[in-house]
Simulated scan of single mutants.
Amino acid sequence: MATEHESVELVGDELVGNVARAALFAALMGASAYVSFPNPISPIPVTLQVLVVFLAGIFLGPVWGGVSITLYLVAGGLGAPVFAGGSAGFGALVGPTAGYLWSYPLAASLVGFLVHGTELGDYRVSTVRLVGAMVAGTAVIYALGVIGFAFVQNVGLGAAFWTAAAAFIPAEAFKIAAAVGIVRSDAIAAN
């Protein structure tokens, strides 16, 4: 009695690859939170998280870039010590920097959309397009970060802007330049 076996693909290779890349960027996002520098103008430290947000959008696109950063938020909310300074838990998602945290998936999706459109495509676009996408992502991060900081700290939007946004402009310019360098070096390596 001969038996035939058929193999059934339960999950496609593309989905598995996308989930793996999203998990990798979520882990990278958590690791980047440990690279923290005090900001002399603000009680909020400077981290490399925004750089990873940019790279997630650029390399993963609008959907999976946002998914990767959402995975990071879920892990941190559930207790993994992946937020700035190794903090974790729901308290970080409602604290003074919560606006930043909630903005990250939106910013990654926006950067991905402005670089790729609705479908993941070639991220080797013009430098002007890359920088424009990251500036737009930064605007989203600052807008929600300032609003969240103002609400939680019970200060006006003007005071919150100087503490939660203006104090970070030099660091963000460095992160944008670093992201362009990373993308350009990857484009050179791919050729």
Score class of each variant (00 low, 15 high):
28 L>Y: 11
29 M>W: 04
29 M>V: 06
33 A>I: 14
33 A>L: 03
34 Y>R: 12
37 F>L: 15
37 F>Q: 09
38 P>A: 13
38 P>H: 03
39 N>P: 00
39 N>M: 14
40 P>V: 14
40 P>D: 07
40 P>F: 10
40 P>S: 14
41 I>C: 05
41 I>T: 07
41 I>A: 12
42 S>W: 15
42 S>N: 14
42 S>I: 14
44 I>Q: 09
45 P>D: 11
45 P>V: 14
47 T>P: 12
48 L>Q: 11
48 L>G: 14
49 Q>I: 05
49 Q>C: 12
52 V>N: 06
52 V>M: 15
53 V>N: 07
53 V>K: 02
54 F>Q: 06
55 L>M: 15
57 G>I: 02
57 G>N: 11
58 I>R: 04
58 I>N: 00
59 F>L: 14
61 G>E: 11
61 G>F: 10
61 G>R: 06
63 V>M: 11
64 W>M: 09
64 W>C: 10
64 W>G: 07
64 W>R: 10
65 G>E: 03
65 G>F: 02
66 G>H: 06
66 G>L: 13
67 V>H: 00
67 V>F: 00
67 V>C: 00
70 T>W: 14
70 T>R: 04
71 L>G: 08
71 L>A: 09
72 Y>H: 12
72 Y>Q: 04
72 Y>L: 02
73 L>Y: 15
74 V>D: 03
74 V>A: 15
75 A>K: 04
75 A>D: 03
75 A>V: 06
75 A>N: 13
76 G>H: 05
79 G>D: 13
80 A>S: 14
81 P>R: 02
81 P>W: 01
81 P>N: 03
82 V>N: 03
82 V>T: 04
83 F>D: 02
84 A>D: 07
85 G>Q: 07
87 S>T: 13
87 S>R: 12
87 S>L: 15
87 S>M: 12
88 A>R: 13
88 A>D: 03
88 A>M: 07
89 G>Y: 08
90 F>V: 13
90 F>K: 09
90 F>P: 02
91 G>L: 00
92 A>S: 15
93 L>W: 02
94 V>I: 15
94 V>D: 02
94 V>E: 02
95 G>W: 10
95 G>H: 03
95 G>V: 13
96 P>R: 15
